[in-house]
Amino acid sequence: MILHCTKKLYAKLPESAKIAEPVTSSIGTQAHWLNRHAHLVTMRRRQCIIAVHDATRFTLLIPCLTKKDFGNLDWHFNDVFISTLLKSDMPSELVNVAATNYQPLTFDTNCNRSVQGTMNQVTQEIVYGLHHNRASVADICAYRYSADLSHRPCGVKGQKDYIWPDREMAK
């Protein structure tokens, strides 16, 4: 699974996890459906990662990361991903397949402006929601928040109709 990171996030990652050159081989093309884009956002002095699935726009929020958490980002990502699938009422067969076939993350800096646009929109929604509800980032449940972010209509560049990320992920 490749996590296409913004430069800000990529700089925080351990060197052992980074890909020296962007993946353009047939393996990278075949595994395109596994790819996600991720961005590091500071919300109320807390470092958070927003990860958006390229094809479905299924969104994950990994809040309140510390410096040592970036070295173990794979574990945090897997935890939020599987738990969000459960909170999104995905079929148990799908959750089992996702959990048993999970591959360690690799990171690069390739970008897709359409997905980055979705990440910016999601960031604005989170910041507004926290401000409106007078909530702290540390108090939110990452799984429930991620499930809610993925249960909303989302526009994708080049597609006429809006998609629902959770429904697209279930497919």
Rank of each mutant, 00 (worst) to 15 (best):
M1F: 12
I2D: 00
I2S: 00
L3S: 14
C5G: 04
K8W: 05
K12C: 08
P14C: 14
A17L: 13
I19S: 04
E21A: 10
P22L: 05
S26K: 11
I27L: 03
G28H: 01
T29W: 07
T29E: 10
Q30G: 09
Q30T: 13
A31F: 04
N35G: 03
R36P: 00
R36T: 05
A38G: 13
H39S: 14
L40E: 06
T42H: 11
R44H: 10
R45S: 11
Q47V: 07
Q47N: 14
I49C: 10
I50M: 08
I50H: 03
A51K: 00
D54Y: 08
D54N: 14
D54W: 06
A55M: 04
A55Q: 07
T56L: 08
T56P: 00
F58T: 04
T59A: 06
L60N: 04
L60Q: 00
C64T: 08
C64K: 05
T66L: 11
T66S: 15
T66N: 12
K67G: 12
K67L: 12
K68Y: 10
D69V: 08
F70A: 01
F70P: 00
G71T: 03
N72W: 13
L73T: 03
D74W: 00
D74E: 05
W75P: 04
V80H: 00
S83P: 02
L85H: 04
L85K: 10
L86I: 09
L86W: 00
S88I: 02
E93T: 14
E93C: 13
E93M: 15
L94I: 09
L94S: 08
V95S: 01
N96M: 14
V97Y: 07
A99L: 09
N101F: 02
Y102D: 02
Q103M: 11
Q103E: 10
Q103D: 05
L105V: 11
T106I: 13
D108H: 05
D108F: 02
D108S: 14
T109Q: 15
N110W: 03
C111M: 13
C111G: 14
N112S: 06
N112R: 13
S114D: 13
S114E: 07
S114N: 12
V115E: 05
V115N: 06
G117M: 02
T118D: 06
M119P: 03
N120R: 10
V122I: 15
V122N: 02
T123K: 15
I126N: 05
I126T: 09
Y128A: 13
Y128H: 11
G129D: 14
H131V: 12
H131C: 12
H131G: 12
N133K: 11
R134G: 07
R134F: 07
R134Q: 15
S136L: 15
A138R: 06
I140C: 07
C141G: 11
A142V: 03
A142K: 11
R144S: 15
S146L: 04
S146D: 00
A147M: 00
L149T: 02
L149V: 01
H151W: 11
R152K: 13
R152S: 05
V156C: 09
K157N: 08
K160Y: 02
K160F: 12
D161R: 13
Y162C: 06
I163E: 00
I163W: 03
P165F: 02
D166G: 01
R167Y: 05
R167N: 09
M169Q: 08
